[in-house]
Structures are given as C-alpha cells and as structure tokens.
Design a protein around this nucleic acid. Structure first.
Lengths: 186, 186
DNA sequence: ACCTGAACACCGTTCAAGT
DNA sequence: ACCTGAACACCGTTCAAGT
C-alpha cells in the first residue's frame, strides 16, 4: 500500500525552493512592519523577486504566511523569556515593547485571525508555554504573585495587551500596571 | 456668496430616504450579528430591499455603516450606565455581556477600524463619557475604587475586554476580576 | 520539482438612466 | 431628490506553459 501513494515522506526541499521561501517570509515581515495589512501579495512577490504563484505555493493561505512572519516574533519573545526576564512583570513589559515596536505585524495578525478560528501554533509558541510557566512559578515562590495566576491568564493578558497597544499605544504601561496590581497575592 | 452654493443647510430628508436608511442599518446590524465581517454590501442591499447604490448613498464608506450599527449598541450601554449600573464593576460586567452576546458586530467593528484612524464618535458615545465619570466618582467616594482611576482607564479596559471576549470568550469574567482587583484602593 | 505571470473570479464602488 | 443595478476597477487566486 505505502508503495503506491508515497505520501511525501518529508523529503528535503530543493535548495532554490527553500531560499525562495525564506525571501518571501522576510520580505513580507518587512513590508507588514511598515504598512500593515494593506500590503498585497503581488507586492510581496515583486519585492522578493519571485512570481505570485511561488508565494501561493509556499503559503496557500494568507493566514499561513502571516503565521510564518509571526513565528519570528515569538522566537524573539521566547529567547527573552528564557534568558533575560527576571519575572512576569519584566516579561510582560518586554512583550509590550515588542508589540509596540511592530504594530504593523500586529494589525496583520489581527486581520488574518478573523477568517479562521485556530490560534497560531508554531515551534516557538509551544516552547513559550513552558518558559512562561517557569516565570510564574518563580514569582509565586518569591511571594510576589498570586497563587491563582495561571499560564492561561498570562496568554489572555497578552492578547488584551496587544489590543491596547494597537488602539491606545501610549497607555499600555498603565494597563500593565493595573493588571499586575490585580495579580498580586493577598 | 452664501446665495450661490447653498451648502445644504440641514434640510429634513425625504420620508422614503429616511425609511431606507433605517432599513439598511437594521438589516446590517442583524446580518453582522450572525455572520460578522463576511456579509457583503450586495447582501445587505438585497435583504433591505434597496439597490446597492442606496447603501452607498447613505453610507459612503463601510466604516460609516459600521458606526451607525455600533451606535445602537452604545445607546443600550449608555442606558444601562445611567439607570441600572450600581458601580463600575456592574457596569463593566454588563458591557462584557453585551459584547459576548453580539461578537459578530465586534468583529466587524474591529475589521473596519484597521483602515481609518478615528474612534467612533456618535451621540451615545459622547454622553457615555459623563455617565462613566459619574460611576467612577461614586465608587471613589464609597472608597471601593482607587483615586487614580480615570475615564480613560475605563475606556482602555473596555477595549481590552472586547479583545478578550472575541479571542477567549469563556475567560472574560476572569479578566475583569483581575482588572477590578488592580483598581482597588490601597 | 519548482517557477512564472497572464487569465479568471469575486466583490467593492461608481454613475448613467429612471422615477 | 432619491433610487436602481449594470458596468467598471481592483485584487486575490489559479493553472497552463516553461525551466
């Protein structure tokens, strides 16, 4: 049976295909950062030096292209969570800064979210969960974070923070102040 | 000079025009509630029993149509804030319930926001500011709300709440719990 | 095996003709 | 003065032909 269909057993892609894929993601990320959701596929293709068809070959849906661009941001946040964050407060502040620095991408992510239901599920995102759980546990042991605080809470707050950064960019630190106050032990 | 251009000194519209306008807004609101941002102008026109051109005559941009639909929701929230809310907590809980009950409209509002910058500025929205200020002052006098809490804070929180309801519908009460805890006096 | 880009489809918007 | 809806424009997506 298996001999017949050969359902693509994860062969390595051709070198030029991989190169094209990279160029498309990087180009998209750069354009999203500057002009947000108004950048169109034709422009990404032109700027990346490939045909539109190539963009669609690698990313059959806009959602998948957006996720690939977002994955890089998750990876950066993950690195911070593991190496530099000295607690939940500093972690969330860093997330706020990253979101604030690239609001174009946030807008694109939000726009792409509407159509499909699924949350983005990349490599970095999966590992982030562990890192955040570690930060929470550490603060709780130190007695500076409520024992009721969960990873789910932090994800929820991150989503809310993203909305605040997008709509009231100047106020996101105030928002974090309130939320962190609400998460203190009592 | 003024004799020449007659810049439409707010004459009353023709009866059928006003009726059409009403029908379009109501139809749009009903369709948005069910299918969110995917409903298209042609469908709204058909369902309302008018031509597409009529939709565009009354609402030159999608944003303006969305605002008209949203205004009704603001009016409802305003009425609650004035008559039924017995404090900020009960007000925000009601907002959460309203947002949760009509997530379709929230999605449409969010989608329309991307293109233009301006916040919606209808009648109800303007009056809401006073009503919220009153709720805040009352709670502060009662000593159950931090003196640092402002109307701006509440608007910010409402925006965040809207995002939480949209993306993690089951968790919005937990979100409010945290935020309200963070707004207690100390 | 992958790439290209012209062709197609879809949908938002306009505007000439009608009442 | 307002309405209608066919025509137009724009842009996302596909796919036949090419390397």
């Amino acid at each position: 049976m298996a001999l017949l269909s050969t359902p693509s057993p994860a062969r390595r892609p051709r070198a030029d295909a991989e190169r094209n894929r990279q160029r498309v993601v990087e180009t998209a990320r750069a354009l999203f950062a500057v002009r947000g959701d108004e950048v169109q596929h034709a422009e990404i293709a032109r700027e990346a030096g490939v045909g539109v068809g190539t963009v669609y070959r690698h990313f059959p849906t806009r959602q998948s292209l957006v996720e690939a661009a977002a994955e890089q941001r998750f990876a950066e946040i993950l690195a911070f969570a593991r190496e530099l964050a000295d607690g939940l407060a500093s972690y969330l502040e860093h997330v706020g800064e990253v979101l604030d620095a690239d609001r174009g991408l946030s807008a694109v992510i939000e726009a792409a979210r509407g159509s499909t239901e699924s949350e983005p599920r990349g490599q970095a995102r999966a590992h982030l969960e562990e890192a955040v759980a570690e930060l929470i546990a550490r603060d709780q042991r130190a007695g500076i974070l409520s024992p009721t605080c969960t990873v789910s809470d932090v994800y929820m707050i991150t989503g809310a923070l993203s909305a605040v950064v997008r709509t009231r960019s100047g106020d996101w630190r105030r928002f974090l102040t309130i939320v962190l106050e609400g998460l203190r032990p009592r």
